[in-house]
């Protein structure tokens, strides 16, 4: 198998980053405008699984841009404004799973699915932790509020979505991976 260069950013990555961002933006808009049933103050955004998938399948730059631009797009479509720290947090949520791109040999093997989910959860934790902790400086809230009010609800919601939907998207993608030159 050809050795993958994780940090390559050629035409392929430019296009997949744009596709990932547009999909993340549109699917985020759908659940922003029509929220799913939630538990407590935990909301579920299925788009997060798509973001993590783009990182896992196409590398860290694609994941970073898809999250960064996609979150801005989602907020632009919903009309909520512009929140730089949450966009960067979403970018990190795409970048970290991208670090696993070189370890994924198959999109259906249990081991690889496990690696993808593991990095997806790590990405969700890192991204949401960044966004929540920066709220301490931006909004002047204390650690307990940032942790309990922002981080935990965001992490739980995103983690549930990653565990359930990411393997389904990866298995579906496996059937076209060869066609788009990924195998």
């Amino acid at each position: 198998m050809e050795k993958k260069n994780l940090w390559q950013f050629g035409t392929r990555e430019v296009v997949y980053a744009a596709i990932g961002a547009a999909l993340y933006g549109v699917l985020s808009w759908v659940t922003n405008a029509f929220p799913l049933p939630s538990a407590g103050n935990v909301s579920f955004r299925p788009a997060v699984a798509v973001l993590v998938f783009f990182g896992v399948a196409f590398g860290p730059w694609v994941g970073l841009l898809a999250g960064l631009v996609g979150n801005t797009l989602g907020d632009a479509l919903t009309g909520w404004g512009l929140y730089w720290n949450w966009s960067v947090g979403n970018g990190l949520m795409g970048l970290v799973p991208g670090l696993a791109a070189g370890m994924i040999a198959s999109f259906v093997a249990r081991k690889d699915l496990g690696v993808a989910i593991g990095f997806g959860l790590l990405g969700a934790a890192v991204g949401m932790l960044f966004a929540s902790l920066t709220e301490m400086f931006v909004s002047g809230i204390d650690f307990a509020t940032a942790f309990g009010g922002y981080f935990i609800p965001a992490l739980v919601g995103n983690a549930v979505v990653v565990v359930i939907l990411l393997p389904i998207i990866m298995i579906a993608y496996n059937s076209i991976a060869a066609r788009v030159g990924r195998r």
């Binding site: 430019v14 547009a22 631009v69």
Partner: peptide
Amino acid sequence: SIDLAFRLVPSY
């Protein structure tokens, strides 16, 4: 990439 993302939104 940013430009393309904005242009793809209506299609998706």
